[in-house]
Structures are given as structure tokens and as C-alpha cells.
């Protein structure tokens, strides 16, 4: 069923998450069948000189945190690139880079080109609600020779959820490079955290409304295995943020790879590992 045939405002307003989830699952299966991708990520801090560990199982090395300056960002990319070799290297939030370029009075494109020249392959995320001009910023990523790992939402937007998601559809119509969208906010209020209903509803509506971005993604580390797994049955098809720590690591009883595969299979789906470039790397 096409999303246009569905009473989206009605579903969004309803408490019937099972019907909503079933609709979203149909849409997800239409696009991906039972295939569920995941990526194991090795995080490294943004500060130059910090420790860099790249476990062989990593599908992506990601520089996380806000760079102190343009020079520090470029230096850190160089360091991590030297350690990461051929592993897909992502880093930074596009909104932080936007702010940095303004602060240092260079164009965003110039900054992105410098990072690309230093070895960065992907900008780790573009938080839609925190970018001054999302379309332009994402186009600059492209023009600079970089890719964008995913479109995210920084904080839970107020207002009508379907209208908000339609803005994402319009953005993709303009830029056409978005590979995945993570509809659950990256920052959650500790005082008023979102509920399970809020989260699965948002994931399901994202799948139904945002029909021009291939993947709906949930962050495994941020949202936890239980919620992330349920989200897979209600529209999500990709899991980000799986730890790349070695399976044989000291004292770990549940290796991340075994754990994620078990959870995906227990949801009746088929796990497929990918890397940061969205290349499938294993089953």
C-alpha cells in the first residue's frame, strides 16, 4: 500500500501502534524484505593526539565530538586516517562544521574540502533541525567530494510529526543523496524522556512518510537493544552504532556481533553487516 493511501494524520493521532507498525512493516518489507543491515562503528574522540583504536571488525571509524578549531579538525582527520588505513572514515556533525566554518570565517565548502583532502570520507551526520540551511549544507558535502553517512534529528521537534517528516521528503527531493534517515532524536530529555510509544510511532511514521530515503535507521547504542529491536518490526531496517569492540575482548560475555544477529533474527528478520559506505560485508 502506498503511503498516500493511508490516513497518516489519523494513524499519527491514534494510540493503535500495532496497526501503524503493521503498515510501516509492510512498507519496509516492500523495500528491503526481511534484510536488516547493521554497521559496527569504532568511535574515536575529536581532540588531536587522543587514543585511536581500530578493531579489525570495525565497518566504520567515526570521529565523534566537536572540533575545537579548523586546524584541530584537519589534524585529527589526518591522524585517524593514518591509523584507520582503508576503513571507511567518517566524522563530525555537519551542524558543528557549519558553526566552525562561520567562526573561522571560511566557507563550509572550503572546510569540507580540507577535511576531504586530509582523508575524511563521510560526514557522520547531518542533524536536520540544527542546520541553518540543510539543503545547501548537504549539497556542499557532495560538492566537496564527501558523502553523508546519515540524516539525523538533534532534538525532538515540536509540532505535527507528519508535517515535520514531509520536510525530510522535500529535502531528499532536492538533494537526492540521503541514504538513511534516523528519525529518533539524538538528544533525549533526561527529565522527560520519550516513551516507547513515542519512539516506535516516530519510526513507523518515518517509514511511511519518508518514502524517498532508502533506510530508516535506529541507533543501537543510543536507544538500546530492546527498543531498537522492536523498531525493526515497525519500519526500521538499519542499525547504526553497534560496538566494534573485538568479539574476543576481555571478559565480554556477549559479543556485539552475536548479540545483534540474535536480536535481528529473534525479530524474524535477516541480519546483514554493512560498512560505513553501505557496502554489504557479510551475513
Amino acid at each position: 500500500m502506498m503511503a498516500t493511501d493511508i490516513d497518516l494524520p489519523g494513524l499519527a493521532a491514534s494510540h493503535d501502534i500495532i496497526t501503524l507498525g503493521m503498515r510501516a512493516d509492510d512498507a519496509r518489507r516492500h523495500l528491503h524484505g526481511a534484510s536488516t543491515t547493521f554497521v559496527r562503528v569504532a568511535d574515536v574522540a575529536a581532540g588531536p593526539g587522543g587514543a585511536i583504536q581500530v578493531p579489525p571488525s570495525a565497518g566504520e571509524v567515526r570521529i565523534v565530538g566537536v572540533p575545537a578549531s579548523r586546524a584541530a579538525a584537519v589534524a585529527r582527520v589526518g591522524e585517524v586516517k593514518a591509523a584507520a588505513g582503508g576503513y571507511p572514515l567518517s566524522g563530525f556533525s555537519l551542524s558543528d562544521l557549519e558553526a566552525l566554518s562561520a567562526r573561522e570565517q571560511v566557507t563550509l565548502r572550503a572546510l569540507l574540502e580540507e577535511l576531504c583532502a586530509a582523508g575524511l570520507e563521510l560526514v557522520a551526520e547531518a542533524p536536520f533541525d540544527q542546520l541553518g540551511d540543510p539543503r545547501r549544507a548537504i549539497e556542499e558535502v557532495n560538492i566537496a567530494g564527501l558523502a553523508l553517512a546519515r540524516l539525523t534529528i538533534g532534538t525532538l521537534p515540536e509540532g505535527d510529526v507528519v508535517d515535520g517528516l514531509k520536510q525530510i521528503v522535500a529535502l531528499q527531493r532536492d538533494v537526492a543523496v540521503l541514504r538513511s534517515f534516523a528519525p529518533l532524536p539524538r538528544r533525549v530529555s533526561p527529565v522527560l524522556p520519550s516513551t516507547g510509544y513515542d519512539d516506535v510511532k516516530r519510526v513507523a511514521l518515518a517509514r511511511l512518510v519518508v518514502d524517498n530515503i532508502p533506510s530508516i535507521q535506529v541507533d543501537w547504542a543510543l536507544y538500546g537493544p530492546k527498543l531498537a529491536q522492536v523498531a525493526l518490526t515497525m519500519g526500521a531496517d538499519d542499525l547504526d552504532g553497534v560496538s566494534a569492540e573485538d568479539d574476543a575482548g576481555e571478559g565480554r560475555r556477549r559479543a556485539p556481533l552475536e548479540e545483534i544477529r540474535r536480536n535481528i533474527r529473534a525479530a524474524g528478520l535477516e541480519p546483514i553487516e554493512r560498512n560505513g559506505r553501505y557496502e554489504l560485508t557479510g551475513r
Binding site: 501502534i17 524522556p193 516513551t195 516507547g196 516506535v200 527498543l227 522492536v230
Partner: peptide, 12 residues
């Protein structure tokens, strides 16, 4: 045991 989120989803 399930956390608040899946705990709440139990109501469905």
C-alpha cells in the same frame, strides 16, 4: 526487566 519503553509497549 524490560525497561520503561518496552514496559509501556506491553500495554499494546
Amino acid at each position: 526487566t524490560q525497561g520503561g519503553k518496552v514496559g509501556q509497549l506491553s500495554l499494546a
